[in-house]
Amino acid sequence: MPSSKKPKRMTRRQFVAAGTMGCAALAVGCKEGNHGNWDFLNDAQARTLTAICDQIVPEDDFPSASQAGVLTYIDKQLARHYRRHRDIYRDGLAQAGAMSRERFGQEPAALAAPQMAELTSAIEKQNRKFFDLVRSHTFEGYYGAPRHGGNRNAVSWRMLGMAEPPVNGRAQYDLRKGSA
């Protein structure tokens, strides 16, 4: 039996109001998407991850993991090719922060080197999956191609004695026969 009720139509005023609110929501949504300098991580997660990565590759004569841009590498990949690892990072970093506060009453980034080493060992034992992931991503970022965000200025390649970019000439001219 057909309904005698007419479907309620949107008035012009409602339409304009809805359009305006939609635009405002879009603008606010854009603003809320601002992560500072990171694509995926937030600042607190980045500080914790920096502390862990710098335990894996600490500074010596050459830069540490974070100084060589490993954080940038991991962040870029988590926003793109490594989306599947996002939950492991979120949970792992939250767990690392909680463990640090519970054991030392401070955030991981504020810990002294021996305390951070202890915390990193504890993370390795309690959340092996997260630690293994961070370790392999740290190595990828430190030793991989600089175009992906890590290995800043090809620092690890120079550490290994590889000139980057290589000085590699071609047999175009025989200059010894004539002009400069």
Binding site: P146, R147, N153, A154, V155, R158, A163, P165
Partner: peptide, 19 residues
């Protein structure tokens, strides 16, 4: 700095090697 098209990055002159 040298612009390396493979890496699409600049390498600062101070980091480049002299053979």
């Amino acid at each position: 700095a040298f612009y390396d098209r493979r890496e699409t990055l600049h390498f600062a002159a101070a980091t480049l090697s002299i053979p």
